[in-house]
């Protein structure tokens, strides 16, 4: 796996309900790391992720992964939503949820092969969910469910994982555990981009950060980028910017 791969937004403008929610955004998010996307409410964080996923049309500019337009790399980008999009009461066990990551690769009709089973086992081992593989998904804790869903994304062969506020509803140990696993996974030449509101968490866990307020305020290594001056420009004075949610 190349260490030079990056998700690059060039002069990106994306409109949401006919208004530019993100405009003239330039940033390069390198692989091998956990990238935090930080900004105030309405800064365009979710819009950016939706544009990367291809759910919103680009009004201008481009998004590339590994030098290719993301539209041609759909299989390598996966997603974990801010609010649970899964049906909590759906009768399914954890293994079947991870299996469904392979359904995305195999399509509707092709049989499950040995390499599919191997990919599922590897993803479950990587996220440490094998021990409750046969348990109903609905009965798992919030942290366990998140890990199963990430294992599903890994099983699908994703190289880029986008997460919109993945720590919502998790207690501190569960959040730390999830971030550790994401960081370890990304270290193998992959990329995790997560919208995170808690700036202390971003400082502690993210290798890179994108400060966003409609356009890129700053983008780069976390320590250097999250300066008081940049944060003030991102959130605007007065700089009451710590630990809020919403």
């Amino acid at each position: 796996m190349s260490a030079d791969r990056a998700l690059v937004c060039h002069d990106l403008t994306v409109c949401y309900r006919k208004r530019p929610a993100v405009h003239h955004l330039d940033c390069a998010l390198p692989c091998n790391g956990l990238v935090g996307v930080v900004g105030p409410n309405g800064a365009g964080k979710s819009t950016l992720l939706h544009a990367i996923l291809g759910w919103l049309p680009l009004s201008g500019g481009s998004i590339t992964w590994d030098g290719h337009a993301v539209e041609t790399r759909r299989g390598v980008i996966s997603w974990l939503a801010q609010r649970r999009t899964q049906d909590a009461g759906f009768p399914v066990d954890a293994r079947t949820v991870v299996d469904s990551g392979r359904y995305a690769v195999r399509g509707a009709f092709a049989g499950f092969r040995d390499d599919d089973r191997a990919a599922v086992e590897a993803a479950m081992a990587e996220m440490h969910v094998a021990q409750f593989a046969s348990r109903p998904f609905a009965e798992l804790s919030g942290g366990q469910q998140q890990r199963v869903l990430i294992a599903r994304a890994l099983a699908s062969g994703a190289q880029v994982l986008l997460l919109d506020e993945p720590l919502t509803g998790l207690d501190a140990p569960s959040a730390d555990d999830l971030l550790r696993r994401l960081r370890d996974w990304a270290a193998g030449g992959r990329l995790v981009v997560a919208v995170i509101h808690d700036l202390a968490v971003v400082r502690a866990w993210c290798s890179e950060v994108l400060l966003l307020n409609r356009s890129a305020i700053a983008c780069g290594p976390t320590a250097a980028t999250m300066s008081e001056a940049n944060l003030a420009r991102c959130y605007g004075p007065p700089p009451e910017i710590g630990h809020h949610h919403g």
């Binding site: 299989g75 997603w79 949820v97 469904s100 359904y103 509707a108 869903l149």
Partner: peptide, 19 residues
């Protein structure tokens, strides 16, 4: 169409992301 129905009913967002 068991697989698409399962995926789309359980998690339509992931189904969409997966093509």
């Amino acid at each position: 169409f068991y697989r698409p129905v399962l995926m789309d009913t359980f998690d339509p967002a992931f189904h969409r992301v997966s093509g």
